[in-house]
Amino acid sequence: MTKTFVIDGKTIPFEDGQTIMQAASAAGVYITHLCHNPQFTPHGSCKLCTVNVNGRNCSACTFPASEGQNVTNISKELNEDREKITQMLFVEGNHFCPSCEKTGNCQLQAVAYHLNMTDNHFPHFFENREVDASHPDVMIDHNRCIFCTLCVRASEQVDGKNVFAISGRGIDKRLVVNSPSGLLKDSALDVSDCAAHICPTGAILIKRTGYSVPIGQRIYDHAHIDAVALASEGEAHDH
C-alpha cells in the first residue's frame, strides 16, 4: 500500500526518502521556493518553502515526508510571512525590475507576484554591490544575488568545476568566484556551463543575448510561477 500524508486536506502519496517538496510537486501541489531546484541537492536557505508540519514550521525542500503528516501549505499567515521573506530579499539587494534584463523570466519577481507583493515593506539596505563584467560571455551583477547557491551547486554537481562559493557571514555574505584574481574571467567558467544558466534572478546573465525574447513574451508574462514550476519540476522529481 502506498504511504501518504496530507497537504491542506489533499492526500499526497510518497516514497521513502522523498522530501515534502518532492512528493508535493509530483502530486501537482506547488510550494513556493527559490533556492530549491529538483536537479540539485536541496539547500533549505531561502525559507520560502516553509510549511507547517504537525504544528511545526519546516522547510519543505529538506524535510522528509512521512506517514500521517498533516501539512499546511496555504494559509493566510504562511503566505503573508512568505511575502515578508520575499520583501527581505528585495531590500537586501538592489532589485530594479523595470531596468533588469531578467524581468519576466525572473523567479524572484514571479514569486513576488505570486504572493501579491506590492511594495518592499522594509527599509532598503542600499548596499554597494559590484558588477563583474570581466568574462567575455557571462556577467555577474551582485546587486541581484539572493545567495540561493544554485550556481554553486550547479558548478560543483553538474559542471564539476567549483567556480562559485558563498563567502562571509551574516548580511555581509557574498558570492565569490574561485579564481586567482577573484574575477570571473580568470575562472574556469564557460558560457555553456550549467552554472551560467541556473540563476533564478538576474545576477548571472549571458552577454549579447539581452532582450532576444521581447518583454511580453517571457516565461512569467503569461503563466504564473506555480504552473511553470509544476510543469517543469514535477517531471524532474518523477525521475
Binding site: 533549505g44 536557505s45 531561502c46 525559507k47 520560502l48 521573506i85 527581505m88 530579499l89 531590500v91 537586501e92 522594509f122 527599509p123 539596505f125 539572493i146 545567495f147 562571509g168 557571514r169 551574516g170 548580511i171 555581509d172 555574505k173
Partner: peptide
C-alpha cells in the same frame, strides 16, 4: 553580527 547568513529570515531579519 553573529548570524551566519545562511537563511533569509535570520540574515536579513537580524540586520533589519
Amino acid at each position: 553580527h553573529e548570524s551566519c547568513g545562511f537563511c533569509t529570515p535570520c540574515r536579513v531579519g537580524t540586520s533589519l
